[in-house]
Structure formats: structure tokens, C-alpha cells
Measured scan of single mutants.
Amino acid sequence: ASVAVIAAGTQGNIFATSALRSMRFLQILRMVRMDRRGGTWKLLGSVVYAHSKELITAWYIGFLVLIFASFLVYLAEKDANSDFSSYADSLWWGTITLTTIGYGDKTPHTWLGRVLAAGFALLGISFFALPAGILGSGFALKVQEQHRQKHFEKRRMPAANLIQAAWRLYSTDMSRAYLTATWYYYDSILPSFRELALLFEHVQRARNGGLRPLEVRRAPVPDGAPSRYPPVATCHRPGSTSFCPGESSRMGIKDRIRMGSSQRRTGPSKQHLAPPTMPTSPSSEQVGEATSPTKVQKSWSFNDRTRFRASLRLKPRTSAEDAPSEEVAEEKSYQCELTVDDIMPAVKTVIRSIRILKFLVAKRKFKETLRPYDVKDVIEQYSAGHLDMLGRIKSLQTRVDQIVGRGPGDRKAREKGDKGPSDAEVVDEISMMGRVVKVEKQVQSIEHKLDLLLGFYSRCLRSGTSASLGAVQVPLFDPDITSDYHSPVDHEDISVSAQTLSISRSVSTNMD
């Protein structure tokens, strides 16, 4: 405001104040949320940038038409019409005319000016109207692209899951042992070998009828009888010197917790746990005396209480009078009846079946994303299906024409109403129809010849004498029936064969 007042002088105070007050009108834009329509302006900018070359070309040609039209109309009207006294007036008329506004304040009066105005109007309006069409088509394409992008975003994750499931299904095939990355992934998420051994031990116990592997080994086996189970490696608790092959000598807290839970599941009659010990102070733990958990001091820290809870689970003690015997301790020893080589084939089979199920689920979810969402998608899918159906029908028609023997030239002739090819031409065609016709002709010829021969033979049998045999009239074959199959017997006289037959029969009768 200060700059405006200084620039306008003393009389500019009122002007500056009114100008600043008129800017209050811009507050109405906040009512229509114009300040939060950044996406709309961004869309407009992207459309203009995408079609910038077309817009520049249309505007450039339109500007050239405007300059030439205004100049030529000015030359034609400057002497006869006072409205075109300057080139600026003519340029104003050209702008209003070519933009199809047409105020009518300035019009050419001479015939030359009117002809020039009409010609440049028809030429220039087309170029001035091009930017509107370019922007409209650009907006339509952009909206369609955003629509497809939205659908693509919805299909991206199911497609990625389907590709991942397909690759993992491919890589978990037993015949592709060189693909090891997927197996490394499952090695990292699978439970430890100790848990798998416990699982298979329970399965084997159920197969043995509820007997433990130790009891199965204690059962008497006759001499020479084959053992029911192959000899396997035996594993004891981590306190002993022997372990399962492939295990580490260090046992983690999870393994100890699972070991304690498995020992508690063996039965309360074979294992008696004394009350857990509780320390009397955060600094020292008295293991010899058993106290109640309700006497825990409230001033303990979080670490002390955590250690106390761990001691409740991981440090059970047995009383002296209830101490288990050596046999019970041997039964409680952890027996590992299986090795990694025995378990891994079954584990890989389970993983393979899981990968198949996940692949089928991913495939079903991806197919669900291909379903249409709204009416536009339904129409688009219907149009695509219609085009596909037309293509299939056209391909089927082409194959039928190839089989029947109607080529493209014959199809055009039928469409024009011309006469089709004759039967002889159809026979000569190298097509399925021509071959079928040729075979039918040959079969008819053979059938006719057989009928003639059978009739001749029956007449010979009825006559009974050589004289009557020679008097029999043998009809000749019709050459038209034989089609294109020409037998060497067709052109010979059958009477010669009949005479030869009669001579042979007379000779045979004389010999008798």
C-alpha cells in the first residue's frame, strides 16, 4: 500500500485504499475450498504439459491467421470504412471474430473485405477451437489413466503375492535341489530340531500304542527276528556328554522351557516337584528354603522380579524323601529317536503342500481383483469380450473355409453374387472337401465294379455249361463312374476274359 501511495501521489490514498479493500473479495475463495484444490491444478498442469506441443502448434497457427486476416482486412477497409482507421481496430475485429465472440461493433463494408473476412474466419476458427478439443481429450485420457492406475494399485499386491507364491512353489520342487534360497528361508522360521524330535516322538508313541520308545526297546525280541524299528541315535539331556547330531552343545531358554513342560507332561506320578524357592531380598537368592510367592517384596526391581519368575519355571527341586529312583531318572531322560535326515523329507513334503495351498489362494485372490467394480468397468469388459468373440468367430470361419475348400476369392465371389465353382473344380482343390469328394467317387466306382462281377458270377453259375458261358453278354464299365481312378482293366474288353475262362473250363471238362 505504501508503494502504491508513493507512486500515485497524494491523490492515490483513496485509490490504494479501495484497491486493498477490493482484495477482500479473495476471501470468498476460501468458501469454495480453492486453497485446498491442489490436486485439480496439478491435474491441469499435467494435461497442459503432456499436450504442450499440440497446444503450441495450434496457438501458433491461429496467431498467424489472426495477424494476416487483420492486416488484409485493414488494407481493404481503411479507405471505405471509418471503423478500420488503424491496424489496432482491425486487430480487435480479428480477435473478436476468430474467437467466435462477434460483438458486431465493427464489420467490413466492401465486398473484398467481406470475402477476406469469411475466408479467414473459416480457416482461423478451426485453429482457435483446437486447444479446447486438445485439453478436453487430454483430461479424458488423464482421468482414464488415473482410473486404471487405481485399479492397478488394487491389483499390484495380489499380483506380487501370486508371483511370489508361484516362485516358491517352483523352487520347493524336490527335483530342483539346486534352488536353496527358499529352503534357507524356511530353515530360519521353522522350530528347532528338538521340537521336531518331540513332535515325531509323540507320533511314534501313538503308533506304538502308547508305549515310549524306551519301553519298546525293553520289550523282549526273539533271536533272529528283525527289529520293528531301525537303530537310531540316542540323545540324552544337555547335561550328559552325548547330543543329537546337528545340535549345539548350548541350550537356549526356549529349549529349557519346552524341556520343563515336556517333563511335566510325562505324568505327576513319576515326577514330584517341590515348592519353588524364593529369594528373600533382591540381592541374594536362598535356594535351600522354600517360601511362598506372596511374600515377594514390593520394592524389588523389574529385573529381580523377572529373575524370580524364571526361577519359578526353570529351577524345580525335589524333596529328599520323594527323590526318584535311578530307573525313573533313566525313563525321564530325553530320548531322541530320530535324526535330521529322517525328519527333513517329511518336513519338505509338508512345506510343499503348504506352498501349493498358498499358490491356489493367491491365484483366487488375484482373480477376484479382475472383477469389474462399476458400470464403466462392466461396459469396458463387455466390449473387450465382444471384440475377442468376433476375433474367435473370424478365426473359426477361416478354418471352416479351409476345411470346406472355400477360399478368400470364392468368398468374395459369393458376396458379389457370382456363380460358384463347379464340382470338377471342387474335386481338384487341395482341401478337405476335395479329398472327401475324391474318396467318395472312388468308393462308388469300386462298388459298381463289384456289383458287375457278382452279377457275372451268378449268371455263370446258373448257366452251368461252357457254351452258355461264352454266350453271356458282359456289360462294359461306364468310364464316368470311375472318377479319376483309372484301372488298367477298364480299357480292355471283358469278353476276352470271358473267352479265356470258357476255354479253360472246356479243357478241364475234356480232361475229366
Results as ranks from 00 to 15, higher is better:
274 A>V: 12
265 R>W: 05
285 E>G: 05
477 F>C: 03
341 D>N: 10
329 A>G: 04
506 S>P: 06
302 F>C: 02
457 Y>D: 08
381 Q>K: 14
290 A>V: 14
362 A>T: 11
187 D>G: 10
346 A>S: 09
201 E>D: 10
346 A>P: 11
432 M>T: 03
222 P>A: 14
420 G>E: 07
426 V>M: 13
355 R>T: 14
490 D>V: 09
223 D>Y: 14
255 D>H: 03
418 D>G: 15
382 Y>S: 15
343 I>F: 14
267 G>D: 09
511 M>R: 05
404 V>M: 07
438 K>R: 10
171 S>Y: 02
512 D>G: 08
483 S>P: 04
403 I>S: 03
204 Q>K: 10
349 T>I: 09
251 M>I: 09
203 V>L: 05
358 K>Q: 08
268 P>R: 15
422 S>T: 09
297 Q>P: 15
357 L>F: 07
182 T>S: 06
287 V>E: 11
505 R>P: 09
442 Q>L: 14
470 G>A: 09
372 P>R: 01
420 G>V: 06
208 N>T: 09
269 S>T: 13
379 I>T: 12
338 L>H: 09
471 A>T: 10
401 D>A: 12
471 A>D: 05
382 Y>C: 13
431 S>R: 03
257 I>M: 13
320 A>G: 09
469 L>P: 04
297 Q>K: 13
312 L>P: 14
329 A>V: 04
489 V>E: 12
423 D>A: 14
326 E>A: 05
405 G>R: 07
260 G>S: 14
347 V>E: 12
459 R>S: 13
491 H>Y: 14
360 L>M: 06
172 T>A: 12
246 G>A: 05
179 L>V: 11
266 T>S: 06
393 I>S: 00
352 R>L: 04
306 T>S: 06
301 S>G: 14
461 L>P: 05
428 D>H: 13
393 I>M: 02
349 T>A: 14
361 V>M: 09
351 I>M: 08
361 V>A: 15
401 D>E: 13
263 Q>P: 11
328 V>I: 11
279 P>A: 14
426 V>A: 10
173 D>H: 06
373 Y>N: 04
236 H>Q: 10
236 H>N: 05
425 E>G: 12
315 K>I: 09
249 S>T: 14
307 R>S: 15
500 T>A: 12
413 A>S: 14
248 S>G: 15
230 P>S: 11
496 V>I: 05
184 Y>D: 10
448 H>P: 07
462 R>H: 09
204 Q>R: 09
503 I>N: 10
